[in-house]
Design a protein around this nucleic acid. Structure first.
Lengths: 195, 195
DNA sequence: AAAAACGTTAAAAAATAATTTAATAAAATA
DNA sequence: TATTTTATTAAATTATTTTTTAACGTTTTT
């Protein structure tokens, strides 16, 4: 019966590997949304299933890429705060562990992006509005020009209210306030996914 | 006094141009967030200030690029629904107009992206969970393997709840429900931007 | 103190993506 | 119907990004 157990063993391993691979692929495929290249996305996805920290050599072996690539990739992942360097007595290699809380990642990524977008645009809008107002105040300016200035002004006003809204959304996500409106629903382990 | 008025005229034109250019630059710079290349972003930003529709030749002249480039760029902008083809009696050239409502653009872009992300990942998670459960049900599977399967399962449960949350966020943005929580504040034309 | 192990930077190579020119297809005018 | 205008596709070019190999500087071990 020895061989049969071995076969079963192998099948179980195969199942686990397939399971992890499926999720790794889908994480890697969707991570481009978060400003990360496919390889870096795949590295993160790989680390996501490691329950103990990885070294650069581990990564290189797992992904079949060069060590410098892993070095820069893991730095990028640290920059966006989804991988942390950990310390462990003994090993003199650097050790890295994936942050597995997607909410944290999501919040920070979009919070930063949107805030930056809003700030940049608001400052340009402010500058533009000053100019346009000057035109409107100028008695001698051509009527056609004035009309265009007015229309631009109206448009920028709308744009400004969008930027402010974006800022508020970013803050509510960063502060966690959004979860009052859209609470996180802990689904129970036995729930089935429904189509 | 003729020359003086001309000079003033020119200055007013200069002011308007500077105003538009400032905003065009900042829109172009931030549009990479919306999955668009810098050139395409700049094209949109340019169209944003046109109060009548543009032809491909107009775009080509404005941006100093080739016509095929404009053709593909404008198609991309139509794909993401921020530029519409309009019809006008007379002209046999195609005419395009920018959608200026950023809320609509934002909603659709992130709604689509997040929904796609959630769906893809949820389906991988579902598949993975089935596999992992099989391992746990297998009497003869190695203890170590089972533990790993259990840990993966716990982790995927968290991931799943994140994906569901993302789906709900996408829906609440697409449906406009989010604006009940974060209302759009129409700022008054005379408000000053505050730092 | 010399050798080995690590991680990083720099330069080169390979792979992708953007852009243009040239060719084609479709529609409109004469 | 032939010619011109317009938009698109295909092929070629250019530019950008990603990845690797090679070199470097530090730290650790022997």
């Amino acid at each position: 019966m020895e061989e049969e157990t071995d076969a079963k063993q192998e099948k179980a391993e195969e199942l686990l590997e397939q399971a992890e691979r499926a999720v790794i692929n889908s994480i890697a495929d969707t991570m481009d949304l978060y400003g990360v290249t496919p390889s870096i996305g795949r590295l993160y996805a790989t680390m996501y299933f490691k329950h103990s920290p990885m070294t650069l050599d581990d990564m290189k072996d797992d992904l079949g890429m060069s060590k410098p690539s892993m070095s820069t990739a893991v730095r990028k992942l640290q920059d966006i705060n989804i991988v942390k360097k950990v310390w462990k007595k003994g090993s003199r290699k650097d050790l890295f562990l994936a942050e597995k809380n997607f909410f944290q990642y999501f919040s920070q990524f979009f919070g930063d992006k949107w805030e930056r977008e809003a700030k940049l645009n608001l400052s340009a809008i402010h500058y533009a509005k000053e100019n346009l107002k000057q035109i409107l105040e100028d008695e001698e300016a051509e009527e056609e020009l004035k009309q265009r200035a007015e229309q631009d002004l109206r448009q920028l006003e709308e744009y400004r209210s969008y930027c402010h809204w974006l800022e508020r959304l970013a803050h509510s996500i960063e502060s966690g306030e959004i979860f009052e409106f859209l609470p996180i629903e802990k689904s129970h382990p036995n729930d089935n996914d429904h189509k």
